[in-house]
């Protein structure tokens, strides 16, 4: 059996990219075996083509109820990563629509995820700035502050666009 590590560069704001990529790989007969620690490297084994829906979910401290509801509904947990990321999969036939975890965009979920994402961003941003202030010289501080602000600005906009898409 041939096994390969393939890479999919997905981010929190575009989980659909990973979901569609994995579904396409399964259709081509590349079955997911494991996800590596980076969350972007995927161990795939050549086997039978399968029709499987993949869904990324974000749940911080889910209760046992979360797992039982999803497993009862035929979902299998393929991977769970740092900070609450979960990857679920479920086989389906040609005669039924692709299953999804969420059938309704509930404003409260969107708001909660937005709040969580925003909190994480600002924590990282201030950690970066504090680190620079403590360890960097004035010139290094000024230039790196600008670069970090640009990077975080970019991430912030991409996340904002993702939540706008969810909302719509």
């Amino acid at each position: 059996m041939v096994e390969r590590t393939m890479w999919c560069w997905w981010w929190g704001w575009n989980p659909e990219k990973l979901e569609n990529w994995l579904e396409e790989k399964e259709r081509q007969g590349w079955n997911l075996v494991a996800v590596n620690m980076s969350s972007v490297g995927f161990r795939l084994k050549q086997g039978e083509p399968r029709q499987i829906s993949y869904c990324v979910d974000y749940q911080v401290n889910p209760t046992p109820e979360y797992y039982s509801i999803l497993v009862d509904d035929g979902w299998e947990l393929a991977w769970s990563g740092y900070g609450g990321w979960h990857l679920w999969r479920k086989p389906y036939s040609n005669h039924e629509p692709r299953p999804f975890l969420y059938t309704e965009n509930q404003p409260i979920i969107i708001r909660t995820r937005w709040d969580q994402g925003l909190t994480a961003f600002f924590m990282l941003f201030f950690l970066g700035i504090s680190g620079l202030a403590v360890f960097g010289s004035e010139i290094v501080f000024a230039s790196l502050f600008g670069i970090i602000s640009l990077i975080f600005g970019y991430f912030f906009i991409r996340f904002y666009q993702y939540f706008q898409r969810l909302r719509n």
Binding site: D73, Y102, Q106, I108
Partner: peptide
């Protein structure tokens, strides 16, 4: 009802 929607609605 999607399983994720079910879990989040019940929790709420």
């Amino acid at each position: 009802i999607g399983a994720g929607t079910m879990y989040s609605t019940l929790s709420r």
